[in-house]
Amino acid sequence: MPVDETLATYSDWLYRSALGVYLFAILLYAVEQAFARAPRKAEALVGAGAPVLVDAEPKRDVSKPERVGRMGAALTVLGALLHLASLVMRGLSAGRAPWGNMYEYMSLLCLAAVVTWIVLMAKFPIRRLGAFVLTPILVLLFLGGTVLYAESAPVQPALRSYWLVIHVSVISISSGVLLIPGVTSILYLLKDSKSDRFPKLPSADVLDRMSYRTTVLAFPLFTAGIICGAIWAEAAWGRFWGWDPKETVAFVSWVVYAAYLHARATAGWRGRGAAWINVVGFALNVFNLFFINLVTTGLHSYAGL
């Protein structure tokens, strides 16, 4: 099928606009983080199973930095919409699911991360962390749009399968969701020290809960993604598991996230130990994304540039 160049161009414009909007949102979040007061105790406990029968946060005047933060949140939603539109246009222009090369994969991954962040913002009083979360996403999007950029085009014979739609999207979305606990776990490690050097970060408890809940959401998804990949590999490569570098690293990060879930239920590993494991999982995901796709040669490398 020929590529619709007009739609492909619109997609690229939307992608750049989304990046710009995210950048602006980061600036607004940063303003809030810098100028708002440290969260009060009660505020930090909301959503953390507070042992009280109180209504949600008492109404009070919204300070200026908070207003700026809200604008940041609104811009994040706008950016996500532009981002989504860019992916849809990509798909329409090439006449296939828009995750057939690394640029598109990265774009979907980041969209999943942003959407997760928006949902979390609605559930936890953590809006001002936006800058910390959106910055790595923006870096990934920037790399995706420059170094990894690929023209809209049809894909190779091996990728012509409905499993491309299922396997790649599930893996990409779960990796995107897993980006969030990676960041919140790093923040947890910063926050959870004896001296409260970072009074403006939410409480360690909230950060820990956020990490856990997002990981718990993404882990079954990631598992399903790997299994879908195995089913596809059985049809495309003649075996469901062959220790291809990508498969190996996916297996390793699966084991690491499994370790995270176990660590959280083990005395002595709860808290900092678990957070470190989550950070390792995050690092492995990044490694799998860049090093394995671009440096090593395996069956998955054709999904690269």
Partner: peptide, 27 residues
Amino acid sequence: SMRTALTLLFLLALAAMPGALLPQLSL
């Protein structure tokens, strides 16, 4: 014990890594 299981999980992850970084005879 869970502690041992955790350690073994780490060892498994660590031991599997060279397979991704070094060329493998089977591949």
